[in-house]
Simulated assay, not measured.
Amino acid sequence: MGRTLLLICLCMTGQVFAQQPSRFNGIEANMGNIFRLSDAKTRSISPENFNGAKGAGGKATTGMGQSASRDLGQGWKVSPSVMIKAKSTFTIAEIDGSGSIQHIWMTPTGNWRYSIIRFYWDDETTPSVEAPVGDFFCMGWGRYAPLQSLAVCVNPGSAFNCYWPMPFRKKCRITMENIDEKDMILYYQVDYILTDVPNDAAYFHAQYRRVNPLPYKGVYTLVDSIQGRGQYVGTYMAYGSHNNGWWGEGEIKFYMDGDSEWPTICGTGTEDYFCGSYDFDTHVKNPAGVDRTEYTEYTTPYSGLAQVIRGDGHYSIAQRFGLYRWHITDPIRFEKSLKVTIQALGWRDGGRYLPLQDDIASTVFWYQAEPHGAYPKLPAKDQLEVN
């Protein structure tokens, strides 16, 4: 009975001992195999060790903390951060060899929509990841909100954490472009391993889009350029409502491997796709004892409504929402192609649907074999602005 229960628990998280490779390489360490020995070599890149070299951390004699450490000297937080000048690009990490990114932590200052993070795998010249840093870490509205999930955590102090495994075979390059008119400060750490990468390991991808406003009766496209074989693993949406009333009746649709007019997967509503229900409402009583409903934030390992920005009745009158859905235990697998769309739909009087013209931004996440299809051009600075 005990062994059966253990196998059930491990199966629920995809961690069955019999399925583990005979030579564990450490790329997908988890609670089911963390005790297994590996030949992987752990490394870390930060402003205290720009290239992740063994035995080279904390050796800086100049840096952003030089003044504060002047009485203590080398080894005392001399270089904890970097300044990225306005209209410039900084290389966060450049790694040669085969391995996998395992964790990224950073806390960027400045405007999170104007800081563009990009990832390049092996010898590719166009990025596999391209998104504003706030949207990549599920903070698309430029305001902190706590978020706890398996793939992304945002912790107090606006600490961004990413746990998506990101294997590479020849090289990894991560950059941050500051498109703002002001300089920004970036604290960061990239934790990775150097190890052999299995033949069936796909590459991590992320793509950002925004439409504001969505045309009347238009359907929002989260992604339509995925070509090749892989699996779709996540959606983040920064949804800005331009109307009163409920906004989340729209269906998400996955068109895969040659689907044309009709998709293979069709959802039943926006709040349903993000694993909520009934408008994300909770019934509460006000101080007078009158029953009312209100949006209820939630974060779980796989889905959440992490952010609800309520209008203040003055200049910030718009309602804005941040939602995520990770397909970690239920990846959407495709062989040749994938297109994903979602409707923006509310209610008219008389019980009829109302096509909405809202502000929708999204970052979607997937793994695939390279090469990847062409990405749409990233919106210009004015089109990225949160207003």
Score class of each variant (00 low, 15 high):
Ala151Gln: 14
Gln148Ile: 10
Lys85Ser: 13
Gly346Phe: 06
Trp347Phe: 12
Ser277Ala: 11
Ala145Arg: 13
Arg70Tyr: 08
Thr91Pro: 03
Gly134Glu: 09
Gly311Tyr: 09
Ser88Pro: 01
Ala380Pro: 00
Asn286Glu: 09
Leu194Ala: 12
Gly230Cys: 02
Asp259Gln: 03
Met139Trp: 06
Asp196Asn: 14
Gly373Phe: 08
Leu6Gln: 13
Phe160Met: 13
Gly267Val: 01
Asn155Gly: 01
Gly142Cys: 01
Lys77Tyr: 00
Glu249Cys: 04
Met237Ala: 08
Arg113Glu: 04
Ile179His: 01
Gly110Cys: 06
Glu385Gln: 13
Gln231Glu: 15
Cys172Asn: 06
Leu194Phe: 03
Lys253Val: 11
Phe137Ser: 13
Gly110Ala: 08
Lys377Arg: 07
Ala202Asn: 11
Gln19His: 12
Leu10Asn: 15
Asp382Gln: 15
Met184His: 01
Lys339Met: 11
Leu384Tyr: 03
Gly313His: 06
Gly134Met: 10
Glu48Arg: 03
Tyr353Phe: 14
Ala53Asp: 13
Lys336Gln: 15
Ile332Tyr: 08
Leu305Pro: 08
Tyr298Lys: 15
Lys339Gly: 02
Trp76Tyr: 15
Phe137Cys: 14
Asn178Pro: 07
Gly65Tyr: 07
Leu186Glu: 04
Ala361Ile: 08
Gly99Leu: 10
Asn199Ala: 15
Ile92Lys: 12
Ala306Val: 13
